[in-house]
Design a protein around this nucleic acid. Structure first.
Lengths: 190, 190
DNA sequence: ATTATGATGTTAGCGGCGTTCACACTACCC
DNA sequence: GGGTAGTGTGAACGCCGCTAACATCATAAT
């Protein structure tokens, strides 16, 4: 028995589910990211989200895609178009800081098997990949970006995970900046 | 009503649960790793494992600890005591190959929040960390291992994850060896 | 030898989960 | 106005983690 004044149809349940999922992730961690909890938060029955997401995996992919876009924004905010190793290092720091600031989101983006059939997700990761590629090409025009870009990405990505798992000490932000910067510089032979 | 000939008490249910968990992981992936499935495979009631593992998390940590030990073995098998960059690179290749050969196990080891209260798990990761540290100290006696070791670990760890997520192409094993080796060499400025 | 005790198993049951199905409501096009 | 497609509801299934109460067994103290 729906309320008379409330609309029976939600309006934009797809978007509501997505933001509910992001809120849940932020507030309660990745374990709390269930379709039922999302439905509750959106004020809707447990089955309703299935009209907009094929299954839980599809919602998770949508959340991950948002994560990739936010990551791209953060990197661009650190430096829109880096062209020196120092600028590249600042982008690397932003990458690691993103992982530490949004650990649950980062783990959803990279910690579990990725649904390669999800267009949105694939496109969003490709965008991040392309962005890194361009940076490397711009910073090191005479290098082979095909070889160097993955190495740099891997280094930064690995640092993020090791910090996230507590394998590296992240208590002081300055130490983190130093370590990431130093690692980048040593990879680049500076 | 237990069978008369079968022993009511299992004998070593703790170990049986652990190997059942590893089998499940290998055969059906990480999603299938439930305490109930483990109990079924061990031929025991759903509640029995709780006598040996406090909760699911504790069993997962035990599985992860096995993973860390296996990883250490694989690295040691690649080279017991590397002392040159080439030997170090072969260890790095073994690290990435381990991740690709046991993806579900690797993700359990590194892809989700780690229970830092689990002694076994902490000890096993510390062993891996120490091993890497020693290698770096041996290969580059004049370097600062405190700075270089995490950078190398991060690079290799990141490569493993990017391969695992399909962000790097792992179709031909030789290409993987080349890329990992090249990345290591570039980090070391060779 | 008997018996108490603690370790280790079972059964039953709770609430939560993902998912599906039949059905209800509503916007919109003819 | 009436049909239709889209979107929400409610009930249900089986699996899950976990707990509590009880059963069985090994061992050690009497």
């Amino acid at each position: 028995m729906p309320q008379a004044n409330a609309t029976y149809h939600h309006g934009d349940l797809r978007a509501a589910c997505l933001s509910a999922a992001l809120e849940l992730l932020e507030e309660e961690g990745e374990a709390a990211l269930s379709l039922r909890a999302v439905a509750r938060r959106a004020g809707v029955s447990p089955a309703a989200p299935y009209r907009h997401y094929e299954d839980r995996e599809a919602l998770v992919s949508a959340v991950a895609a948002v994560g990739y876009r936010e990551l791209a924004e953060r990197l661009a905010a650190a430096h829109p178009a880096p062209s020196t190793p120092e600028q590249l290092a600042s982008v690397a720091v932003a990458y690691v800081q993103f992982a530490l600031k949004r650990p649950a989101l980062f783990r959803i983006m990279f910690g579990e098997p990725c649904d390669r059939d999800n267009e949105e997700r694939v496109a969003a990761t490709a965008a991040v990949s392309l962005y890194l590629h361009e940076i490397v090409a711009r910073c090191f025009p005479q290098s082979d970006p095909e070889a160097l870009a993955p190495a740099i990405w891997a280094l930064v990505h690995g640092l993020a995970f090791l910090y996230l798992d507590g394998k590296l000490d992240a208590t002081t932000p300055a130490a983190l900046v130093d370590r990431v910067t130093a690692s980048i510089h040593s990879l680049l032979g500076l």
